[in-house]
């Protein structure tokens, strides 16, 4: 379960910006939630806070009852490594690594033995239907294929939480639909909690729940 209690995030600068303003939100385990809102509404900030990539100025973020704000940097990294998978708009694959190496990277970071990493990476690439692209570099793949590799990578440790930041934002409609289908499929099969930040209403409506943000506050929370 993901739990946000009165979370505020303020960015200091020449003019302070409040990206999130005392947001409280609970996402039960296994739910697939979309976060929507105009640019600057705080969607990505919320995702970064849940993913432990950033820390709130005030309030608490908990994952499965573990409060992230009380953790030091290494402990936070461990939470990210063991519990969270990230999918980014621009894929963020390492260009010098092959598909199988990209997918295996989080496992190498966990110190898994090479053979086990290789077996898991191949299994996941099979799951996203890229078993024929194992040794290809990202530049040799289409946008949709790259996002599939990124999804396989996000799933490498079978994390209980999958966070996706505009996963279809850089893809054409058809490929976007394919990726969305894949994410839904992964959600159904693995039962993980999925949080998708999106501008795309089709993506948003395909989720069980949609939370709308505006100016750092929740303005709508719809369950289907």
């Amino acid at each position: 379960m993901i739990d946000l209690e009165a979370v505020t995030k303020q960015f200091a600068g020449t003019r302070d910006v409040i990206a999130l303003d005392a947001v409280s939100l609970t996402i039960p385990t296994g739910e697939m939630v979309s976060i929507i809102g105009p640019s600057g509404s705080g969607k990505s900030t919320l995702l970064n806070l849940v993913g432990g990539l950033d820390r709130p100025t005030a309030g608490q973020v908990s994952i499965d009852g573990e409060r992230l704000s009380g953790l030091d940097d290494d402990a936070l990294t461990r939470v990210r490594r063991d519990k969270i998978g990230f999918i980014f708009q621009f894929f963020n694959l390492l260009p010098t690594l092959s598909c199988v190496e990209n997918v295996g990277l989080p496992l190498h970071l966990r110190g898994w033995p090479r053979k086990k990493v290789d077996a898991r990476a191949r299994e996941l690439l099979g799951l996203v239907k890229l078993e024929h692209r194992l040794t290809h570099l990202p530049e040799e793949l289409s946008g949709g294929e790259r996002q599939r590799v990124a999804i396989a990578r996000a799933l490498s440790v079978y994390p209980p939480v999958l966070l996706a930041d505009e996963p279809t934002g850089n893809l054409d409609t058809r490929t976007g639909d394919e990726i969305l289908t894949l994410i839904r499929d992964v959600h159904d099969r693995l039962g993980c909690t999925v949080v998708i930040v999106t501008h795309d209403m089709n993506v948003a409506q395909s989720c069980q729940r949609t939370v709308a943000l505006r100016d750092g506050r929740i303005v709508e929370d719809v369950r289907r």
Partner: peptide, 16 residues
Amino acid sequence: RSEIGILRALGATRGQ
């Protein structure tokens, strides 16, 4: 930087 950022997001510690 972006490579470091990706590695950090994937669970690399500062030490790593």
